[in-house]
Design a protein around this nucleic acid. Structure first.
Lengths: 196, 196
DNA sequence: CAATTTGTTGATAGTCACTAACAAATGATA
DNA sequence: TATCATTTGTTAGTGACTATCAACAAATTG
């Protein structure tokens, strides 16, 4: 990793930290990018070069994404829902342990701010596509179309779990909410299977 | 319905029609709201008073929303997935018959334009919430949390069907794509049920 | 059918997210 | 060290969106 990349990442963290402070204090709409840039000691165009949009200052993160590998590993031994549930718990617990304060602050702000939730949609869409690909590779009896659909269903569980987690203020462990949300998903699926 | 509301709806249709023409000709980003307003014979602030944002000029529609009632009616006799599938086919076919040209143009443009797809997310989120409420009322064994989850899963089917429909240029009937997407969804669910 | 009240419109001016262009500075490279 | 490639800040711009207010149209009332 070059010095340039280091500086870039360091600067992005600074900007995100400044933005987090300002947004929490005054709300997303009341803070201008100009103000964030000034607080972080850079110019506004630099912020845009790094993040693209005001929303992505918060949505961005640089936790290394071992998630899909972890899921793929579990997928050799477990059925899809279990593999993803286990992988998610493992990987997100790791991220949370590593930087719990920032994770919580970002999640809270995102849940509370419609514009940020919306800006997160493309991120989830990409995760869905990647997860679909992993599932299609891991389970021979899944066509690509069905694997993508299954990935979408699983993401519903993910979003639900995180929503509930933040809903409780992050007090109960993320792990618990994943287990609950996936249990609900499983129950819905089984009931539906019986009925349909 | 008062004269004022009539004028408002008529004006909104004019604006949407003008926007559709311009967007199709030059692309969403290349057309300013000013230009749309001029083409529709109103002022820009009026466009904003009517639609709120540039995106919602296209996302907006005024087809009367009998969808949930229709689904609720079917829900007394069919299991959830079937009830929603049947209701959707019935109702969306009706809308499509009534104004097929505009429906297709709007759908195509929305699928092709990221900003419009994003602006449609809150609309789908509201539909999900309403559908969840209907399901919770219609099926006694569903808790509210699970009904909401089921609604989210069903919306995955909806989005998939519409995506595939537009993907084929709208040649194959919407009906067919709904049947296929819901069949895939059912298959995923049943496989998953067996595996989990 | 006036007279009054209420809601809607266009004109104007402003804020702010975001981009293009260029010159100065700084990290990579030979 | 000398050259090359990137990154930065400055400046100036576009366009989405909002607030204000005066002119106007429509609902309401006597």
């Amino acid at each position: 990793m070059s010095l340039r990349d280091d500086k870039r990442r360091w600067s992005m963290r600074e900007v995100q930290a400044a933005a987090l402070d300002l947004f929490e204090a005054s709300g997303f709409d009341a803070v201008s990018v100009e103000a964030i840039a000034a607080a972080a000691g850079v110019s506004a165009p630099t912020v845009y070069r790094h993040f693209g949009t005001k929303e992505r200052i918060i949505v961005w993160d640089d936790y290394d994404p071992g998630l899909l590998d972890t899921i793929a590993r579990h997928a050799t031994q477990l059925p899809p829902l279990r593999a993803v549930e286990t992988g998610l718990i493992e990987e997100l617990d790791r991220v949370y342990e590593a930087d719990s304060r920032r994770v919580l602050r970002r999640a809270r702000l995102m849940l509370a701010t419609p514009a940020l939730r919306l800006a997160n949609v493309p991120v989830l869409a990409e995760l869905r596509a990647e997860l679909g690909a992993v599932l299609a590779l891991s389970y021979a009896d899944l066509t690509e179309a069905r694997a993508d659909l299954l990935a979408a269903v699983i993401l519903v569980g993910l979003e639900t779990a995180i929503g509930r987690w933040i809903g409780t203020g992050g007090k109960t462990s993320l792990r618990t909410h994943f287990r609950d949300a996936f249990a609900d998903l499983r129950s819905v699926i089984l009931t539906e299977g019986a009925l349909t």
